[in-house]
């Protein structure tokens, strides 16, 4: 990602437009673009926590279906967003991650254990709408394992 190198203009890249954070009721929806610059990602991290704090949203859905390339930085940002929002009493769900992206993250050793995931944004909304106890994730039924 180009943001990893100092920009010749000394500031954030002039091409980096901020990622919009959409509000749908109690849930914030963020669709990541395919070419996310590191600077934009950091900006997004701030925007999300600001918006959650201001609006009192209870859930954040990050749609990754358009992202084809991921690096360790973006992986860390995702983990950080989840940690921040959970401090603000909102749950983060990452939706629509592509197989290649999932494999890359695993190979990088970023299994993002605290992060909730869903196949599509629709599933993610359903997951967040389910206000009861969180769905059992791997690890909840450990007593029965071999």
């Amino acid at each position: 990602m180009s943001g990893a190198f100092p920009s010749p203009y000394g500031g954030p890249s002039p091409y980096a437009t901020p990622v919009p954070v959409l509000r749908l009721g109690d849930v914030l929806l963020v669709t990541l673009p395919g070419d996310l610059h590191d600077g934009t990602a950091e900006q997004l991290q701030q925007d999300i926590s600001d918006t959650v704090a201001r609006s009192g949203a209870t859930g954040v859905v990050i749609d990754l279906s358009g992202v084809e390339i991921v690096d360790s930085f973006l992986g860390r940002v995702l983990g950080d967003i989840a940690a921040q929002t959970s401090l603000l009493a909102a749950r983060t769900v990452v939706a629509g991650m592509r197989p290649a992206v999932a494999i890359t993250l695993v190979e990088l050793g970023l299994t993002l254990p605290g992060l909730r995931t869903a196949l599509t944004t629709e599933d993610a909304m359903r997951l967040l709408g389910d206000q009861g106890p969180t769905l059992p994730r791997p690890g909840d039924s450990r007593q029965e394992r071999v």
Partner: peptide, 14 residues
């Protein structure tokens, strides 16, 4: 474990 972790990242339970 890698396969399980990747499937989980995609939102499926393995």
């Amino acid at each position: 474990m890698k396969t399980v972790a990747a499937a989980r990242l995609m939102g499926a339970e393995c």
